[in-house]
Design a binder for these strands. Structure first.
Lengths: 247, 247
DNA sequence: CAGATGCTTTGACCGAGATCAAGTGGAAAC
DNA sequence: GTTTCCACTTGATCTCGGTCAAAGCATCTG
């Protein structure tokens, strides 16, 4: 059994997501207030964090790991509707039941705030509300980008799109020079990718094999991906290769 | 040639979207400030309001009519990513170029604010910022709902989903008693529906014919729809028939 | 070691929806 | 009136991705 990831810093100043999360714009005093109501929770890969319809008595930020928002129909068809990376926000102030299942896709640490105190704090500190608005607008843009992928792209383009998103994010975190091949590990199973892309896991597998055969990507094992030419991948994704993207 | 729709009220107090738009929570003083920077613009059906990539020097609310946000790939494939109804907000404070094409789907009136003054006003009036956050979160929910439709539903379910969304909205505006058949006019062409649903216009047409044949809907002309049994339509859409929806 | 178990790959076949191609019907234009 | 136009419908055919089925492969278990 995987040990639950440990996490025990308590000082926001040391926090790895300090300047990207909902608290990004907070000054020292505001941060102190937040420290008063925050607590950490860890989840292991596969765990359900919140069930759709459940009461949500906290909101929070992903500190490390990946979570996903998922919708399921009665007959079992499921669609991932959000991929939450470190610094992303979970929960909606002003609403108390969850509209989606929230799953830990990898081992995960969250920085949680009890909902009521957070809401109170939010109404007094415009910095938090403003940052949350920014983040929500960014998520809305991402969701709309994804609607194009779901509605109009072919299976191959969908896979290429997902790979380029993951690659881009990884590049933005690791801050490397942007020349040379990009290397990363897929944080999702084939099934999770399928749920994200509106495909079956078989099709995901086939398209990954095809991209490998055509040397758009290289695979070591099932998860370790190398992208020799990012421009090529973007073409395969059907995007402008100039890739004018905000991260 | 269709005359451009007229609109000449200037008093926010009389405005039909007064309590649903971004100004919903404003008090009299705030409203007065808004009145100072607002102006109306009319568009006729089919006009492009903003091109993707253009400088946006205003933001605003849809007062009447319907606008759509659309993304287009180089080869012409297009996906609608937003359907803007009266009271919905257009534009993003803090960004100056548009990420999508904005089209007038029907004749349209917008209440516009020059961007800079609006941004300034927003930072001083939490009522506006807060309302905008609410509205953005609602749009994000709608976008995620739509991701399930695009990713996992069949063509028939997609059409039924779109019809039930339009029906539900119409019911919420017209505030009728919720018994008896629902009647409305489709505000979209077959092609616009196809762009919304990630289908071709031929498939849209076929599925509408099929729903008619199966008596889920009745058609007079091409656009006038009657829904004898809303529960039945929801079943066809693949939704829980209890329809726990916020409007 | 053998046997599970979970994730992944691959093959064979099928069908929903796309594509290509006419044709309909109503309203505006001449 | 008839011509044109546009939104829409319907048919025939093709194809991409889904479905069903089997097997590969790594890790854990006893």
């Amino acid at each position: 059994m995987t040990p639950i990831p440990k996490f025990d810093h308590t000082n926001c100043g040391d926090c790895p997501i300090r300047h990207r999360a909902v608290c990004a714009h907070c000054d020292v005093n505001e941060l102190e207030e937040l420290e008063g109501i925050k607590y950490y929770r860890s989840f292991e890969a596969g765990q359900t964090i919140i069930w759709s319809g459940d009461q949500m008595n906290f909101v929070g930020s992903v500190v490390s790991g990946i979570a996903s928002l998922t919708q399921t129909m009665e007959d079992g068809r499921t669609q991932m509707v959000g991929l939450l990376l470190p610094s992303d926000f979970v929960g909606r102030p002003g609403r108390d039941s969850a509209p989606y299942d929230v799953l830990a896709t990898t081992d995960l640490v969250m920085c949680c705030f009890r909902k009521k105190p957070f809401e109170d704090l939010m109404s007094n500190t415009p910095h938090i509300a403003h940052r949350l608005l920014q983040m929500t607008l960014d998520e809305l843009d991402a969701a709309r980008e994804w609607m194009l992928v779901l509605g109009r792209k072919t299976a191959r383009e969908k896979i290429a799109s997902l790979l380029s998103i993951i690659a881009r994010r990884d590049a933005s975190i690791n801050q490397k020079g942007n020349t040379g091949p990009i290397v990363f590990d897929l944080p999702l199973t084939r099934e999770a990718m399928a749920d994200y892309l509106g495909l079956t896991l078989e099709t995901v597998s086939r398209q990954i094999s095809a991209l490998k055969k055509d040397q758009v990507i290289t695979l070591e094992g099932k998860r370790h991906v190398t992208i020799p030419d990012m421009g090529r991948l973007m073409e395969e994704a059907g995007d402008d290769s100039d890739g004018g993207f905000l991260v």
